[in-house]
Design a protein around this nucleic acid. Structure first.
Lengths: 172, 172
DNA sequence: GGGTTCATGTAACTTGTTACATGATTAT
DNA sequence: ATAATCATGTAACAAGTTACATGAACCC
């Protein structure tokens, strides 16, 4: 699962510009993938040069022209092949857990702040995901897309609860 | 949070060889960080050249000599500085969720298999983490280290439950 | 006047992955 | 026998990050 795959996946839904792809990644898929322009534009160029996607230029005034990309037949084949291939293990890296794990010298004050800060982050993520869910529902979500959001929310929620429990224990 | 930081963290606990660091990463910290030899050995070399760690060679017969590394004072400072710095956001990448998200053409059979396979994976992870917890407890865990395991288990458990619920709904 | 949105992109760099290479010892 | 454990490492490569560069339009 690389940038390439997710770009193909997004273009599989509909024609998109690099800018839109970035937007989707940031707002819609950020709970299971991250991407930046530095990845998106070079990937689009490469996919185009390989004939996986084709470009349609939309001339604009006052802004750079839009490059609207869509999958070619070959691109759709690659997407299908990816979707049929073995599923990779999930990748999870937590700087927060590392702080806990190696923080031998964390006093109660510092630990409290660390936990509180992380609870805040979970809240933000839950908020974003909940808000977005509402918006997406208007546009129509597939059953499996809804599953992914439920999965994401459950994950945030469960870890938040653990943190709250630990914070409570600490305070008593 | 990079390989460098986690290597310093591990060496902060006690002297270790590259081999042992790999072992710890694989068996003890795999639920929040991944590392390979290809990262570990070059990182150790670099840290040594920068004076962050020092090497003690243990001569062995029939095996390569052991290189036992320990933090220098400078290395301990860097570790502390890291531990005081801002906590990075957690990174989560899920190929599984991507398959769900872009799998418009998943029929019930394929979806069932996808969900069942992912439930299996969660079980494996929960098993490993539970087993390891027992072993670590014998060696002594800090309170915060125990927290990290609880966090990890809660995460696996919550997502597993979501998958089981979805599978049940699918079958009915 | 200042921030956000739209819209493109590149170049240098960092980081880590993959695959390879070696080889004795010990457990099954 | 054969697999696993101990123990080191490198070289080529892939992938993505960060920082930079440009600039009009629009909203507050």
């Amino acid at each position: 699962m690389q940038g390439r795959d997710i770009v193909l996946g997004i273009l599989g839904e509909s024609k998109r510009t690099g800018y839109e792809i970035n937007d989707i990644l940031k707002n819609r898929l950020s709970y299971f993938f991250d991407g930046t322009y530095g990845m998106i534009y070079p990937t689009l160029r490469k996919l185009e040069s390989e004939g996986m996607i084709s470009k349609e230029v939309i001339v604009q005034v006052g802004k750079p022209n839009k490059n609207l990309y869509s999958l070619t037949e070959q691109g759709r084949e690659e997407l299908h092949a990816y979707l049929e291939s073995d599923v990779d293990d999930e990748i999870f890296k937590s700087d927060f857990l590392m702080r806990l794990f190696f923080g031998y010298d964390l006093d109660d004050d510092k630990l409290t702040r660390l936990l509180e800060r992380e609870i805040e982050r979970k809240d933000e993520k839950i908020q974003t995901l909940t808000d977005n869910l509402r918006i997406w529902k208007e546009n129509g979500l597939t059953r499996t897309q809804e599953m992914t959001i439920e999965y994401g929310l459950a994950q945030y929620d469960a870890t938040k609860k653990v943190l709250e429990k630990q914070l409570k224990e600490l305070k008593s």
